[in-house]
């Protein structure tokens, strides 16, 4: 019954799903351009994946093959379209990114000290580029909350209830309902390792929407697709 309910609430046509993936693709294309300029390396992108799932399913999906500690920058956006964007790195990869951005010979303890500040700056640039491009064909306006740095086990970090509850509180001043569903869009990326194998970075970007946001998104998709 749960799955039927989920599909009913979040029913997207094949064309709407396709359009959403294309917007995500455009968003990450722009974000990858920002990242590639920062690390002076090409960023390779996977094909977008879209899933409409419960929190539990989303967490299970995200933590699959992610046994190690993760680091993320979370960027909530609030307005006509609200949601959460996450830029996620396996823990060691985030330090490599910081090392690439700052200096190859910086001692590890200094790098670790600068990790949070650096990743917040990087995450903010990347996620803003991503969201601006993701919504470029839509008529929605939204504001960004301050980016947050998160570090911990995958279960902790990918506690989607917590991400959505934060959003929901900002929108409704209320806690998120237990049966709330999430729309999950994700793409993997990694830097090309042609020259500096030791600096190969990988991570993924995740976009989460609540049911309310999904209704807004669906309306936007209908309008955009109606034009073509």
């Amino acid at each position: 019954m749960e799955k039927v309910e989920c599909r009913r609430v979040f029913k997207l046509s094949a064309l709407e799903e396709d359009a959403l993936k294309e917007f995500f693709n455009m968003g990450l294309g722009m974000a990858a351009d920002s990242l590639s300029q920062m690390v002076d390396n090409e960023v390779l992108l996977s094909l977008p994946q879209l899933k409409i799932v419960s929190y539990e399913e989303a967490t299970a999906h995200l933590v699959a093959n992610q046994k190690e500690k993760l680091v993320a920058v979370r960027q909530n956006f609030i307005g006509e379209l609200s949601g959460t964007a996450l830029l996620i790195f396996p823990g060691a990869e985030s330090l490599e990114l910081v090392r690439t951005l700052l200096s190859d010979d910086m001692p590890l303890d200094i790098l670790s000290e600068l990790e949070q500040e650096t990743l917040l700056d990087v995450g903010n640039v990347i996620l803003n580029a991503f969201l601006a491009s993701f919504t470029q064909m839509m008529s929605v306006e939204f504001d960004f909350e301050a980016a947050e740095f998160l570090k911990g086990s995958s279960e902790f970090l990918l506690n989607i209830t917590s991400h959505l509850a934060t959003q929901q509180r900002a929108i409704m001043g209320d806690s998120v309902a237990d049966d709330e569903r999430a729309v999950l869009l994700m793409m993997d990326f990694k830097t090309s390792d042609e020259e500096k194998k030791q600096h190969t970075l990988s991570g993924f970007v995740v976009l989460l929407f609540t049911r309310q946001a999904m209704a807004v998104l669906k309306k936007e998709l209908e309008t955009i697709l109606g034009q073509w």
Binding site: G29, A32, D33, S36, Q37, E42, L45, S133
Partner: peptide, 8 residues
């Protein structure tokens, strides 16, 4: 393409 990196 959406992949607008300089190298591309």
């Amino acid at each position: 393409t959406a992949n607008i990196q300089e190298r591309m």
